[in-house]
Design a protein around this nucleic acid. Sequence first.
DNA 1: AAAATGACGGTGT
DNA 2: TACACCGCCATTT
Length: 103
Amino acid sequence: MNFRQKVYGIVKSIPIGKVATYGQVAKLAGKPKGARAVGLFMKQNPDIPNTPCHRVVAGDGGLRGYAGEGGLRRKMEMLKEEGVEFVGDKVDLKSSIWIGTEK
DNA sequence: AAAATGACGGTGT
DNA sequence: TACACCGCCATTT
C-alpha cells in the first residue's frame, strides 16, 4: 500500500468529535517525519468525500489550512459542530486529540 | 534526474 | 510567547 493510501485510510478512521495531528497521522502511516507529506496529500485531495481532512490539525492544535470552501474559517466551524473543543483559535488537543490505533 | 514547493515539526534566539 | 532556521517526505515542474 502506498504511503498516501495509508494516510487516507487513517484519516478516514478518525472518529467524529476527535482530531489528529499531521505528525500523528504520518507516524501511524509509517513515516514519523512525514507530517509535511501528509498535509500535501490533504491539499491535493480535499474532494474525496470519505476523507475528513478537516479533522487533521497542526501539532499545536492550530489549523494550517483547508482547500475546501470557506477555508480555515469553515474548517473550524465544522470541527466545533462535531464536538471538538476549541481554545481560542486552536483545538483543545488534551481533550479532543484522537488516540490512533490506541490499544 | 535535479531542483523547487508545501495544510509540518522541532530547536534555537 | 513570537519569530527564524533547519530537517524530513512525497509530489510536481
